[in-house]
């Protein structure tokens, strides 16, 4: 079992950010986490990393991440780009080496970064910046990857590239996204969150009008694609 949460809650300044979450995630699953702003998505990732003092219980690979820091060696975290100091003069190769001294050439090729190794990170497009961050996460060969809004400011081509690589990765993947559509065909399950767990399951079971209304407090239109998968529309505006 990759993650097991039992009655998991987290409060910030006496305000409940996460309330009574119960879920299990198996090894190797690809999970998308959706919900409106302030739903507690990033907070949940931080609980998994053991960075927050939680109520209830969360186990990652069978251990409490807040006390067993060894767990962090198995997890890679890709934060929101807005939290980075992009004006720091730092090259792509420096960023890739942050998680692992040894560089995996295959990952560099997969992300088409070979000719950009000496480029400054701040000079890359949003799509390539995100590729570098995810490549950095993969360098330490993690058992779990947590991504916080990996598609923000990323063009369709890079979204597709990133999704294909994440699909192939031999690790449990949790991606917080506002717009599920770029990865809906790749994910195993979707977690719909708004402080409490609204729904957790296969995309078609989660994206019902009732669940979406419960999460976003608004009518979210949905379409069904040729493969029969329900796509919620305007998820990015509501999220």
């Amino acid at each position: 079992m990759a993650i097991k949460a039992k009655n998991l809650s987290f409060s910030y300044r006496k305000k409940k950010v996460l309330e009574n979450l119960n879920f299990e995630i198996k090894d190797g699953e690809f999970i998308a986490i959706l919900g409106p702003n302030g739903a507690g998505k990033t907070t949940l990732l931080k609980c998994i990393l053991g960075l927050l003092k939680v109520e209830g219980e969360i186990l990652v690979f069978g251990k409490d991440p807040s006390t067993c820091k060894k767990i962090l060696e198995m997890i890679s975290y890709v934060p929101q780009k807005s939290t980075l100091s992009t004006d720091l003069p730092i090259t792509v190769i420096d960023v890739l080496r942050m998680n692992s001294k040894e560089l995996n050439e295959e990952i560099i090729e997969d992300f088409e970064l070979c000719d950009k190794m000496k480029t400054l990170f701040r000079e890359l497009s949003g799509g390539f910046q995100q590729r570098v961050l995810i490549a950095r996460a993969l360098m330490k060969n993690p058992k779990m990857i947590l991504l916080d809004e990996p598609f923000n400011g990323v063009d369709v081509l890079s979204q597709e590239k990133i999704t294909k690589i994440l699909e192939k990765v031999n690790a449990t993947v949790l991606a917080v996204v506002h717009n599920i559509n770029p990865i809906i065909h790749a994910v195993d399950r979707v977690m719909l969150l708004n402080r409490e767990l609204i729904a957790f399951g296969k995309p078609n079971d989660v994206f019902t009008k009732e669940n979406l209304f419960k999460a976003y407090k608004a009518e979210i239109p949905v379409v069904i694609c040729e493969e029969g998968i329900i796509h919620p529309l305007y998820g990015d505006q509501h999220g």
Binding site: L49, L51, K69, L72, E73, I75, S76, Y77, V78, P79, T83, L84, S85, L88, I90, V95, M98, N99, F121, L146
Partner: peptide, 10 residues
């Protein structure tokens, strides 16, 4: 460069 990533890496 990445305070959150640094904290998450231990």
């Amino acid at each position: 460069f990445d305070p959150e990533g640094a904290e998450a890496s231990g």
